[in-house]
Design a protein around this nucleic acid. Structure first.
Lengths: 211, 211
DNA sequence: CCGTATACTGGACAGATGTCCAGCAAACCG
DNA sequence: CGGTTTGCTGGACATCTGTCCAGTATACGG
């Protein structure tokens, strides 16, 4: 029965979400007021009232900051393990210890809940032609690749990122960098994952020095 | 420098953690008081003070429920609003309506809690030289750019992604694509954000799309 | 044209909340 | 023993905060 929010209400809802995620707690009515430049707390309060009426927000009367965005639990955030280096065996994920995790919501990744997903830190520049750089974090899904997909493949005991191509029904791999051997015949091809997302944090994005 | 908590302080810390996990927000001083059966709010407050002194807890003075347990930020997920298009004014975030949100953890993004962060969907191929593609999601932070940073800049009422460079102390912008005008003199430069991360979901990464 | 919903201004009040001061008691330590 | 830390009582205050009432303006649909 929850109807849709107005544009303005959507903005308020987003601000609440954002504030909670960033500050660790929901905003007060007056913080919302200040953010939107309202002259009265009532402007913010009435928006909250409207959102509550539409079942998009829940409140605890009289309590400070007691806002809960509907479906905020539902916003599922996946913890994707990062494997810095994928050793030969791999089949046993148990023997791996992740190098940390990326957290991302399933919606923006469009990850299937059932899918087995993991991430790898890219080393080398063999895929710069596909705009994948050294240091990038590539999110992979365990499934059969299609023609043109970028995959993590096991070659000679080492894992590398390559583009998966089909020619005359026979699969082969290509490094997206002219400096690298253009084709790699795949005599026994082990595909470890298919790229579904990429995550980059430029090193030169450095902040000015902290005070 | 952070010393160990007392048994009692540990209990308080645990209660704060548990309350936040269960209720979605930290407790008030008086909720702590009630939970432990104290006769005075000061009993709880002094525990918080002690914990803060030991760097195990952080508070925002004067603000309700403004408690943050140290190390709790690990799985904190930020909601970064996506602005599909940045219009001229922009200073007024109020006039914007986000196009949704990306959720990512602060650790992997290395986002400062205080920073104002937003994301933009990249249009066009003016930055392919910097390995930024059409459709990529670029996360930007509101701050002064440094030489070499990639920035979102306002030029002639339109927002584009460019590399920010300094020559003889004068800033100018460069598109990372030979097909584009190489230099753009910046006569009145408005920097809207500095790129701190990139998020890509390849279209061709697609699921079983039949050929 | 009327009614309703949305979006806000302006002012006010009661209770919630952080904070401070002045103690008291027990445990610990040199 | 004396000093310090910890753990608490009791009360008080300023302000933070949710809430309410009254009123204005705009847009939309019947």
């Amino acid at each position: 029965m929850s109807s849709k929010p107005t544009k303005r209400q959507e903005q308020v809802l987003d601000y609440v979400r954002r504030h909670r995620a960033l500050q660790g707690l929901p905003p007060t009515v007056r913080e919302i007021q200040k953010h939107f430049g309202f002259a009265s707390p009532n402007a913010a309060a009435s928006h909250l009232r409207a959102l509550e009426g539409k079942k998009l927000l829940f409140r605890r009367p009289g309590a400070a900051r007691a806002l809960r965005v509907a479906g905020d639990h539902g916003k599922e955030v996946a913890a994707i393990p990062i494997y810095g280096d994928i050793p030969a065996g791999f089949a046993d994920t148990r023997e791996q210890q992740p190098d940390g995790c990326v957290y991302a919501d399933l919606d923006s990744l469009d990850i299937r809940r059932t899918a087995r997903t993991f991430a790898v830190r890219v080393r080398g520049d063999s895929m710069t032609g596909a705009h994948i750089l050294d240091g990038d974090l590539v999110v992979l899904e365990l499934r059969e690749p299609n023609h043109g997909n970028i995959v993590a493949a096991l070659i000679d005991g080492e894992t590398t990122l390559k583009r998966y191509l089909l020619k005359n029904r026979r699969p082969f791999l290509r490094a997206e960098n002219p400096q690298y051997p253009d084709l790699i015949p795949a005599h026994e091809l082990v595909i470890q994952g298919v790229m579904i997302a990429l995550f980059r944090k430029p090193k030169d994005a450095g902040r000015p020095i902290e005070p």
